[in-house]
């Protein structure tokens, strides 16, 4: 695994004309929000993801991961290679909550929990 580098933003935050551009479509996170997060101290892929929820929607970061990493990398002046990756989490695909929730072990019928 390549190592993760935490770097602060190079320069103070300056608004940019396209800060309202949506980067993560599923969770509607904008470029400006991601830039501000970096300036606010969130520096790795997973830190920004947990703070803003980009990459936590339907596509699970398949579409937006690289795009929001590019923004973090540019603000911090480092390569996307050094930001770490979104940790893949189940469910990898959208699934109705009842499909998950119905998965209960009936202790009476199945005492060993098979």
């Amino acid at each position: 695994m390549s190592k993760i580098i935490r770097t602060a933003a190079k320069e103070p935050f300056k608004p940019e004309p396209d800060d309202d551009l949506i980067i993560c479509r599923c969770e509607e996170v904008t470029k400006g929000e991601i830039r501000r997060a970096v300036h606010g101290g969130f520096r790795t892929t997973n830190e920004v993801k947990r703070w803003l929820r980009c990459g936590m929607g339907l596509c699970q970061g398949q579409t937006c991961q690289r795009n929001f990493q590019n923004i973090i990398a540019k603000e911090a002046g480092i390569s996307v290679k050094d930001l770490g990756m979104i940790s893949g989490r189940s469910p990898a695909r959208p699934v109705m909550i009842d499909v998950f929730a119905n998965e209960v072990i009936d202790a009476e019928k199945d005492p060993e929990g098979k």
């Binding site: 695994m1 390549s2 990756m85 940790s87 893949g88 990898a92």
Partner: peptide, 26 residues
Amino acid sequence: LSPMTQLASCAGCDVEYSDQTGRLSC
């Protein structure tokens, strides 16, 4: 195209950026 690496990551496999294919991809 970008490989759908989530499942591999979920399984604990190492996932990283590489330029093996001539450009940086995950």
